Amino acid sequence: MFDHVVLTCVDRFRGERTLSGIYHLLTGKRSSQTLQDAKGYELDMLFGIYPSLKRESLERRVQPLIRDGLIQINEQSFPSITSEGTRRLSSFPVQELTYFEGMVWHDVIPTFVRRVYLMLQMMANTNAGIDHYVPIVDDFGTQNWVRTVYHQFQDKLPKMVESMYEEIHHLLKEHPSLQAELFVHRLTGGGVIGMTIDQLKREFDLNIEDVELMLQHTHYYLFLESKKKKDRYPVLHLCTKGLDATHLITRSARKTYQYIQQGLSMQEIMNLRRLKKSTIQDHIVESALIIPDFSITSFLSEEDVREINNIGTQLNTKKLKQIYEALDGKYDYFELRLALAKGQHAIKEGMTQDEA
C-alpha cells in the first residue's frame, strides 16, 4: 500500500516536486505550499494520512522503486513515474485506498481511534468481569470521555457491547481482509492483549509503513461509515460525536482572514500583527485555498486570475518559476500562488456542473 501511495504522489506531481513535497503532504504539514500542492495536484485525500512517517523511512522505501524502474529521479532530485510505474499503479486494487479523506478528516481521526480502542477495552473487560486494568490509551481526554459514556449508559452496557461487536464485525466483513485482520489483532480487552505495530509487521510479513497505512485506512473506513450511518452503527457513531470536518485554516491564518474581511490592507495587517509580509501572504493564499468564496479582488482582478491559470494549463504545470517566466515577470510569486489557489475552486465548480 505504501508504495502505491508514493507512486500516486509521484504520478500526480508530474516531476514538479521533490520527495520533500511527498513527505510534507503525507505528514500533513500546515504550510500554504503543502496545502497548495494537495489542492493543485488533486491529492487532498492523502493529506495528513501518515503523520508519524519518518523522512528516512520514505527515502528508504523509494530506493526499491527506483531500482525496479518504477520511478526515476533527475539531476535536480525531482522524481517522475515511468511507464512501468504507471502500469503498476493501474493494477492496484482501488478499494484498498477508497476511504482516505485526509484533507477533511485527518485532524479528528486520532481522537476517534483512541475512543474506539479504549471503548472496546472497557466493554470487553466489563463483559469479562475485569474491574482493574491499565487503559491502553494514555490520554486524559479520551479516558474521561469513555468514563462518561460508561456512567451514562451503564444500565445498557450489555446491549452496547453486543451492538459494537456486531457493528465492527459487519463493517470488517465488507473491508479488505488483510486490513480487517490487522485491526482485529490490535484490539485489547477481556484478557487479550493487542499486538504492537512491530508484532503485526512480523506476524504478517509486512513493512511497517504498510501496517500503519492499512490500519489508518481501516480507521478512516470505520469513522466515515459510522459517521454517516447513525442508525446502522449507533455505538461507533457515538465515538464520532463532536468530531467535525477540518477547515484547515490555521489559527494565525484565520486571524489574518478576519482582518481582510474587515477591509484592512496587507500593510495594516502587517503593522497590527507585527508579522512579515511573506507570512501574511502565506495566510492569504491559505485562505484562498480553503475558502471557496474568499474574494481576492483587492489583490488580483478576475482577468489576472484567468491569465495566470490559462498559462498554467497551456504549459501543463504548477511550477511557479515556469509560469513566472512565461508571463515575463508580469506577476510576482505571491500573485501567482494566489491565482492558482483561486483557480482550484473554479476547476472544481466546473467539474460539478459537468457532472450535473
Rank of each mutant, 00 (worst) to 15 (best):
A180K: 09
F92R: 02
T188Y: 01
Q281T: 10
F2H: 12
A38Q: 08
Q353K: 15
P93K: 00
M164G: 06
Q216C: 12
Q76V: 03
I197A: 09
K276M: 08
I22N: 05
S91T: 07
E335G: 02
K156R: 15
A38R: 08
E162F: 02
R273D: 11
I269N: 03
F299W: 02
A341L: 04
Q344S: 11
H169C: 03
L340C: 01
T126R: 07
N207P: 04
N271C: 01
E355H: 05
H132R: 14
R55G: 03
E302G: 02
L327P: 06
K277S: 15
Q199C: 10
S31P: 10
D354A: 14
N309S: 11
Y165M: 05
P93V: 11
M123N: 07
L157W: 07
Q76L: 10
A124V: 00
Q72R: 13
E203H: 07
E167N: 13
D231S: 13
D37R: 01
L264S: 04
I22E: 08
G141E: 13
E42M: 13
V211C: 06
R12D: 03
T240K: 08
Y324W: 10
A339Q: 06
A253V: 10
L172D: 06
L65W: 00
H283S: 15
Q95M: 09
K330F: 01
T317V: 03
L120E: 02
S31H: 09
K173R: 13
S163D: 10
V149W: 12
Y23V: 08
G350Y: 00
S177E: 15
I66K: 08
P158E: 14
V146Q: 01
L118T: 07
V184R: 12
K241T: 02
L338T: 01
Q72S: 13
I130R: 04
L222C: 13
E101M: 07
K319Y: 04
P135I: 05
P158A: 10
Y41F: 15
L187T: 06
L172M: 14
R186E: 12
E59Q: 09
M119W: 00
L213Y: 04
T313Q: 15
I109T: 08
M103R: 11
E42F: 12
H4A: 06
G190H: 12
I296P: 03
P135Y: 01
N127P: 02
H283K: 10
Q258Y: 03
G263A: 07
L171V: 11
E303T: 06
T297C: 09
L336F: 00
L26Q: 07
S278C: 02
D131T: 14
V116D: 00
K227H: 14
N125Q: 05
I130L: 11
M351R: 14
P64E: 08
V113W: 00
